[in-house]
Simulated scan of single mutants.
Amino acid sequence: MLEVIGAGFGRTGTFSLKAALETLGFGPCHHMLGMLEHPEEIPMWRRAAQGGPVDWEEVYRGYRSSVDWPGVRFWRDLVARYPKAKVILTVRDPQRWYDSARATIHRAAVDPAPAPTPVIRDMKTMSREVVWDGQFGGLFTDAEHAMRVFREHNEAVRREVDPERLLVFEIADGWEPLCRFLDVPVPDVPFPRSNDKDEFDSKLREHVTGAMTTTT
């Protein structure tokens, strides 16, 4: 059962938040990158993107928290389905967010080169359906449109989520506001500062290497 719902778009520090939540005991935390290791989840998210029925208990079986896409696309469903869960909206300057997203996760998603493994192929298909065609209507390369979607999303979360359930959070804020919001002690370790592009590249290499090893 989800106890924490991340409502911030990818490239707003979601991988750092994932690491922080797991350090605080709210793991495992669902994140797009995890599907490299759990490809069985991909069809469920594709079904959700296509408007099919979704069993959220099945989707999040074994998880205590969720951040990043694909979950953030369905934040309203999750907020309603888990009324006791707290909601964290990670935020960032819109222009810096757009520049980062376009140079990293969007570029990887639209790369025309053949996917090196079936899992990566399926993940790219799912991300297009959920994020690039779904969240952004196929217009992500229109910077003004994409940033408008970003701002309107953040405004909707602020407007629709009960303020007592919601933390608007910048990764630079560190442990104090996050731990106060979740009512847990501040850990005696530095706040995680993870770059999900680097982490993605690392996990991608591990996945491809593992796939090649099992087929040789």
Rank of each mutant, 00 (worst) to 15 (best):
E199P: 08
R96H: 04
M32Y: 06
L21F: 08
Y98E: 07
V161C: 06
I105R: 06
G25T: 07
H31S: 06
V79N: 00
W75Y: 14
V130F: 07
W132Q: 02
V72C: 09
E155N: 08
P177L: 02
G6K: 00
E155C: 12
I105P: 00
T141V: 02
E160W: 11
Q95Y: 07
R180T: 13
P185N: 12
A113V: 08
A85E: 04
G138Y: 05
L78Q: 06
W56M: 05
V4N: 11
N195V: 06
D173P: 06
T209S: 14
D142M: 07
D55L: 09
R121D: 08
F191R: 10
R96L: 13
A103S: 15
W132H: 02
R102H: 08
V157Y: 00
F169M: 09
T23D: 09
M212C: 12
E3M: 13
D162C: 10
E170C: 05
V91Q: 00
L166W: 02
F150T: 03
R159I: 11
V208E: 09
V87F: 07
K18P: 06
L2D: 02
Y60S: 03
T141S: 12
R121A: 15
V208G: 05
H31K: 08
A146L: 02
L166G: 01
L36N: 12
P70D: 07
Y82G: 02
R205V: 12
H145T: 10
R205P: 04
P43D: 02
R148F: 01
E199A: 15
E152C: 06
F74W: 12
G134P: 02
N154I: 00
V72I: 11
Y63V: 04
E58D: 14
D77F: 07
R64Q: 11
Y60A: 07
G10S: 13
P70N: 12
D188H: 14
F150C: 00
P192C: 10
V119P: 05
D99N: 11
E41K: 14
I120Q: 09
R64F: 13
T141W: 03
M1K: 13
Y60W: 10
F191C: 03
V110W: 00
H153E: 08
E144S: 13
E3C: 09
I171R: 01
L182S: 14
R46M: 15
R193E: 15
V189Q: 15
G210Q: 10
I120D: 09
V54L: 15
D142A: 04
V131E: 00
A48M: 03
L166T: 07
P116D: 13
W175K: 11
W56I: 12
L21N: 03
V72G: 01
Q95F: 11
E57L: 14
E129M: 15
E206W: 04
D162G: 07
E40Y: 12
